[in-house]
């Protein structure tokens, strides 16, 4: 059974999971297959482990509750990544609203305590995250998925529900905005 599950494609497993009444072997296999990728996306978009953990669990919960609504119009992986991105963006928007209400300082994501944040070489990376934080949420997410996760324009277009040409334009404009805002950083 385990070998059988491993040989099946994501889409076949998704179809099996849709037929399962509870979190059966197909859904468990999908969680195992996508756990690390979803976690990575959530961490990159949210910038801290606690929120990333919360968001990644929310993603799999949504996948489970909506497991019958995957229609196969895109790759299953793209569908999962789309859900992950939307969950993270919702969480970030909620977080920034909370911060505004509580009139705290600037966004504290990607704090210095995260692994890989300390050290001289990380100074530039920290600057880069701060620079990205000046963009709007969608632009920031698009650039992170493109450059950190290596998604191509077609995949990103499906995730963000726009055409590839519109997405290319969006990437280009986001880069221009960064260039205008931080001319000395380049």
């Amino acid at each position: 059974m385990i070998a059988d599950v491993r040989q099946r494609t994501d889409e076949e497993l998704a179809a099996d999971a849709a037929r399962e009444g509870s979190d059966g072997p197909a859904f468990v296999a999908l969680v195992e297959r996508f756990r690390d990728r979803v976690w990575r996306i959530c961490f990159r978009l949210l910038g801290n482990e606690q929120d990333a953990n919360d968001a990644a669990q929310e993603v799999f919960l949504r996948l489970f509750l909506h497991r019958k609504s995957f229609e196969g119009r895109s790759r299953y992986a793209t569908w999962v990544h789309g859900i992950a991105v939307r969950a993270c963006l919702t969480m970030r928007r909620g977080r920034s609203r909370r911060q505004k209400r509580e009139t705290l300082g600037p966004d504290d994501s990607w704090d210095q305590n995260q692994p890989g944040r300390a050290g001289a070489a990380d100074g530039l990376k920290l600057d880069l995250m701060k620079m990205l934080d000046t963009l709007d949420e969608d632009d920031r997410a698009i650039l992170i998925l493109k450059y950190a996760e290596g998604h191509d324009y077609e995949e990103l277009a499906e995730i963000f529900e726009m055409t590839p040409s519109a997405l290319k334009m969006r990437v280009s404009r986001a880069r221009e905005k960064l260039q205008q805002r931080f001319p000395n950083q380049i």
Binding site: E49, G116, M129, Y147, L178
Partner: peptide
């Protein structure tokens, strides 16, 4: 904006998925 600056994003360390992730998710 030179592409290589943004490409540094890929080199940012991402911590491993928490060990208790599956149990928490199941719960």
């Amino acid at each position: 904006m030179p592409t290589d600056l943004l490409e540094q994003l890929a080199r940012l360390d991402v911590p491993p998925t928490p060990v208790a992730f599956d149990d928490d998710l199941h719960e």
